[in-house]
């Protein structure tokens, strides 16, 4: 190895090397798991694993502030937001196997492997003997957080102020796309609902899951006495599950006297 590479290797302590070789494959596994997992929620959880791994790397590389922010903000806020939205909307759609563009998956994977090799090798060769300066000098006066604050509010002040525009846009956008404004007169009180119900042809409550129900989830219809699903027990806006046929009663006489 060249002298530069030897020096660079010295900058990395054994503890750090051990951490890298343990957490690195974990992060890699998380990434692969995320891309290849069928279930979208599993994908999100694999990504959480990768992000936690990266958080460990930040701690190990003299970036404790960033490590904490990674875990609290990225994993703890952004990924949880992903999980919320997945629970609300994206859970049931597993990717179909039929491809719109023929061979797109294989082509993408081949291209990806080639790309990773090219970029990884290029970067690796470019940097492997570069001297590692390390951050002791930069963070000497007050530690990592103080040094970051010092630079943030002098050199990068404008970027800091500009992100406020970004966050306002995000908030406005979220409200525009997700908040339905109800007219004040629209909301029907319980009295209105009750009156409407009694005025209709069916004043009683709707049937819930019955004795023969195998599940009480919202998409299971109730079963009438003859074993057919009750049509009006369907919750609005949800596709009802198909029920397995109710087995016929066993009509062989039971042994012994009836209880």
């Amino acid at each position: 190895m060249t002298e530069g590479a030897l020096l660079a290797a010295e900058a990395v302590s054994t503890g750090e090397a051990v951490t890298f070789w343990i957490v690195g494959p974990v992060a890699l596994a998380g990434a692969l798991g995320m891309v290849f997992s069928r279930n979208a929620i599993h994908s999100a959880l694999w990504l959480v694993l990768t992000m936690l791994g990266l958080g460990v790397f930040y701690f190990v590389q003299q970036a404790p502030f960033l490590g904490v922010v990674q875990i609290i903000v990225y994993t703890g806020a952004i990924m949880i937001l992903f999980l919320f939205v997945l629970m609300l909307v994206g859970r049931e759609s597993s990717d179909s196997v039929v491809e719109t563009l023929r061979g797109q998956r294989q082509a993408a994977i081949v291209a990806g492997v080639a790309f990773a090799a090219l970029v990884g090798a290029g970067i690796g060769r470019a940097v492997y003997d570069a001297p590692v300066v390390g951050l002791e000098e930069a963070t000497a006066d007050g530690g990592n957080v103080v040094a970051i604050a010092r630079i943030l509010f002098t050199d990068y002040l404008f970027a800091f102020e500009l992100t406020s525009a970004l966050l306002i846009t995000a908030a406005v956008g979220a409200m525009v796309l997700a908040h339905v404004e109800k007219e004040p007169s629209e909301r029907r009180t319980q009295k209105d609902l009750s009156t409407a119900r009694y005025a209709s042809s069916r004043p009683g409550t709707l049937t819930g899951p019955g004795v023969l129900a195998t599940s009480n989830s919202l998409d299971t219809p109730a079963i009438l006495a003859d074993g057919q699903p009750a049509a009006d027990s369907a919750a609005t806006g949800i596709e009802m599950r198909e029920l397995p046929p109710v087995p016929d009663h066993d009509t062989t006489p039971t042994k012994g006297t009836p209880r």
Partner: peptide
């Protein structure tokens, strides 16, 4: 529009990136 103005006037790649996002997010919406 503000993001676009800063995007074209930024001398620093980070400001350019933030301005790129500032101009893009409203357009997506």
């Amino acid at each position: 529009l503000a993001g676009m103005m800063i995007f074209a006037a930024s001398n620093n790649l980070l400001v350019m990136f933030v301005a790129l996002e500032v101009l893009s997010l409203p357009l997506y919406l």
